[in-house]
């Protein structure tokens, strides 16, 4: 890098800036958001605040639409679907398709000994539902979870911009 004939370039300012950038990205990065599906456009709530203590394990269920544009450029949506482990489960099939999956999840909870005194799962179910979903579909999902042995639920909403 520095031979007798070469010109020394002072790298210090560049390295300073680069470390500043790395620090900035490390501070603003939010790994929690990595689990959230962008197809779910949640409702906004002034009172929505992140939990003070995040549970170590949670079962995240995301209900939303597949949106696309038609020939005229108008937004068309299909669904609602439950986005679960890469599968798209339509709302009418929640009971038939999702219930067996949930039963398997509950069996895993049982094997891990993660049940409370009443034999119910300690793991909370986090529901991220699209603002335009039918409430009945969300309730149906809650009902299926209850039948499978989950009784703690957390309904997600977005904080308003700038808060």
């Amino acid at each position: 890098m520095a031979s007798s004939n070469s010109i020394d370039i002072d790298m210090t300012p560049m390295i300073d800036i680069v470390f500043q950038l790395i620090t900035f990205f490390m501070v603003v990065i939010n790994f929690d958001a990595a689990n959230s599906d962008e197809r779910v456009r949640m409702a906004v709530s002034d009172l929505a605040r992140p939990p003070k203590v995040k549970p170590p394990v949670e079962l995240v269920l995301q209900v939303g639409f597949e949106r696309h544009r038609d020939g005229a450029g108008k937004e068309v949506k299909d669904g609602p679907f439950l986005f679960y482990n890469g599968d798209l489960i339509p709302a009418p099939s929640f009971e038939k398709v999702f219930r067996p999956m949930l039963d398997r999840e509950f069996q895993i909870e049982k094997i891990k000994g993660n049940l409370d005194g009443d034999g119910k799962a300690k793991t909370p179910v986090v529901i991220r539902a699209d603002a335009e979903c039918a409430t009945g579909d969300v309730q149906k999902l809650i009902q299926i979870c209850q039948q499978a042995g989950y009784e703690k639920f957390s309904l997600k909403a977005m904080q308003p911009e700038g808060k």
Binding site: I15, I22, F25, M26, I29, V44, A48, L155, K156, E161
Partner: peptide
């Protein structure tokens, strides 16, 4: 410098600027 640039590229690609999420807890036995 190679490593540092790799890190910057990783953070830039994984960064998602979005509003925070909050929740309402309900207990429904």
């Amino acid at each position: 410098i190679d490593c540092v640039f790799q890190l910057i590229i990783f953070f830039m690609l994984t960064l998602k600027i979005r509003a925070n999420e909050g929740d309402f807890n309900i207990n429904m036995p």
